[in-house]
């Protein structure tokens, strides 16, 4: 199973990862983050994550700290 680890404390709510994810697995959460905006969250109930890592590539804060790809 492919997945990512997201550190919400690092998220500055720029939402670049939301646009980047090809499977639309990253969305705004209900939690307010350090900039006063909603942070993002990763939800993958159907195991759709490809482990492609583009979310980590575009994140300017390294808030997506780990990406695992199913082999």
């Amino acid at each position: 199973m492919s997945y990512i680890k997201l550190n919400k404390n690092k998220c500055k709510s720029c939402y670049l990862c939301i646009d980047a994810c090809p499977k639309n697995l990253i969305k705004k959460s209900n939690e307010i983050g350090q900039t006063g905006e909603y942070t993002v969250e990763f939800k993958d109930d159907e195991n759709l994550c490809l482990g492609c890592g583009v979310c980590a590539v575009v994140c300017p804060e390294i808030a997506i700290t780990e990406v695992y790809k199913d082999e």
């Binding site: 500055k12 720029c14 890592g53 990406v67 695992y68 082999e71």
Partner: peptide
């Protein structure tokens, strides 16, 4: 298989102090 991690050359527990969305990070 892990395909991304925080680079070793980034200081542990350091957070960028740039504005949201800035490409510096």
């Amino acid at each position: 298989m892990q395909v991304f991690n925080i680079p070793r050359a980034i200081k542990q527990n350091s957070n960028f102090t740039f504005c949201p969305g800035c490409d510096h990070g």
